[in-house]
Design a protein around this nucleic acid. Structure first.
Length: 457
RNA sequence: GGGCCCGUAGCUCAGCUCGGUAGAGCAGGCGGCUCUUAACCGCAAGGUCAGGGGUUCGAAUCCCCUCGGGCCCGCCA
């Protein structure tokens, strides 16, 4: 039985009493051992919580009692059988009749009061971090539960969960450097996906009208408090809907997850963090807000050179040959992003920033796109999808021409797929590790990932 | 890539400013204690002071380099 059941069995007893008519059995890890000559106390943890073991010469006998105490160390994994009891000080306890050593901890657990503090060691040896800290175990359980909620949400909205390839000949769908590996059999270099977007949209061409995928995505770039080379991404595509529909769906998801997060981890930190994900959310028009904050007029009619000079004037050191979209992004990052105080929806981006989105129906020079920002990071990116194969081909070429490298790689087969007809569609990508960070109030993406990549030493 | 900070016992930390035999608590060992919950009391043990080089009669301490980590900035659209 779990320690929670065992504790309940003790609940009715008065302090100092035990009930020899009932037998309890628990198994778990010894956390602390307090010896008092012929009596000893130990705390035993399992997935359900903790219970005190009460060991006495009276029940175990002099010889076995001394042998047990000589053998036991904090960190050992034991099974215990005995009677429900309450200590004289009122602690629910298992009065032990017999003990079984299930696994010996040869390496000692971290110091019991301060715990495992060394940030680097906690990442390199996450198993020690987990065994030493119930809070860390709770955090990662919550992560899994929240991802499970995401699945339920999309499932109940009629979305089909699918798996698309991680190994690809062309890694496209985002602007990022891929990891490259090699197939010995095919004798060809393969890339790890940098997004799930293009395979998922192919599925909509194929008639699966609502699909989503949650899985690892890989970007061969920097590692810092909000970037991990391997991260969990959610992407969803929805035919016969546009980005306004997607916004409503997203807000519903955030609302549900915010409520669930507080249930899972009812701490002030999480309550505060999760509250920020309760609708309604402020909306910021990319161009209007940037013009208002910066005082720059007619942003969309500025030449690339003008935008470059404007970016230079705020201290950006991006290369001269960067794209128009890059300069606009730099200006936005500088003038607007620091003003966000909570979860914010930024809408209707300049066309130049986004090669896969549909042109805005009423705002010239824009795409139908929203991004979700928190004060700390970009969280989600959604748009009404571009469905026209000729325009898609043209946009890939423009992107390549401006950047002069092979990012946002031209995916020829994807353009071919569009020729068969992609229904009007909206799609979204959400950084799941970051979403967990936001909901639980974590400041580093490494706190959201069980085994983050660390440098060899 | 730049700046700042950190690395001392298995764990949590002092010691570094101002150079002079490397310390404490927890864990582990031995002894004591029949109600503790950071149990307590006593004894003994435990070190590549991240690594390398330099200055010095003498370096954990001062200087340089390297490695690892954290934070900030830049870059990554």
């Amino acid at each position: 039985m779990g320690t929670d059941t065992a504790r309940q069995a003790c609940a009715a007893l008065p302090a100092g009493a035990d009930d020899s008519s009932r037998t309890l059995r628990v198994a778990g890890r010894l956390r602390a051992l307090r010896q008092h000559g012929k009596t000893a106390f130990a705390d035993l943890d399992d997935r359900a919580g903790t219970i005190q073991l009460l060991l006495r010469v009276n029940e175990l006998g002099e010889g076995p009692y001394q042998e047990w105490l000589a053998d036991l160390d904090p960190g050992d994994i034991v099974g215990a059988e005995g009677n429900p009891a309450v200590s004289r000080r009122g602690e629910p306890s298992l009065l032990v009749r017999s003990l079984t050593l299930l696994s010996k901890a040869i390496a000692p657990p971290p110091e019991k009061y301060h715990g495992f503090q060394d940030v680097e060691e906690r990442l390199r040896r996450r198993y020690v971090d987990l065994l030493a800290s119930p809070e860390v175990r709770d955090r990662f359980r919550a992560r899994t539960e929240l991802i499970s909620e995401i699945r339920k949400y999309f499932d109940s909205a009629g979305f089909l969960e699918v798996e698309t390839p991680i190994l690809l000949r062309v890694a496209s769908g985002a602007a990022a450097a891929p990891f490259v590996t090699h197939s010995n059999y095919l004798d060809v270099d393969l890339r790890l996906r940098i997004a799930q977007e293009l395979p998922l949209k192919r599925l909509l061409v194929g008639g699966l009208e609502r699909v989503y995928e949650i899985g690892k995505t890989f970007r061969n770039e920097d590692l810092d408090s909000i970037h991990s080379p391997e991260f969990t991404e959610l992407e969803a595509y929805w035919a016969y809907a546009d980005y306004q529909d997607m916004r409503a769906l997203t807000e519903g998801l955030f609302d549900k997850l915010a409520r669930r997060a507080v249930e899972l981890v009812p701490t002030p930190q999480v309550e505060k963090a999760a509250a920020a994900f309760r609708p309604p959310f402020p909306t910021v028009d990319f161009v209007d807000e940037l013009e208002r904050r910066s005082g720059i007029k007619d942003l969309l009619s500025r030449s690339r050179e003008e935008l470059r000079e404007l970016a230079r004037s705020i201290g950006s050191t991006v290369p001269d040959n960067s794209s128009t979209g890059t300069f606009l992004d730099k200006l936005f990052e500088h003038y607007v992003e620091p003003t966000f105080t909570g979860v914010t929806f930024v809408v209707d981006f300049p066309l130049a920033t986004t090669p896969l989105a549909r042109r805005h129906r009423s705002k010239p020079g824009r795409v139908e796109r929203f991004e979700v920002f928190t004060p700390a990071f970009e969280l989600a990116n959604a748009y009404t999808e571009l469905t026209d194969p000729d325009e898609q081909a043209e946009r890939f070429r423009t992107q390549l021409g401006e950047r002069g490298d092979d990012r946002y790689a031209y995916d020829e087969d994807f353009v071919e797929a569009l020729r068969y007809g992609l229904p009007p569609t909206t799609g979204i990508g959400i950084g799941v590790d970051r979403l967990i960070m936001g909901l639980l109030g974590l400041s580093s993406i490494k706190d959201s990932i069980l085994f983050p990549l660390v440098r060899a030493r």
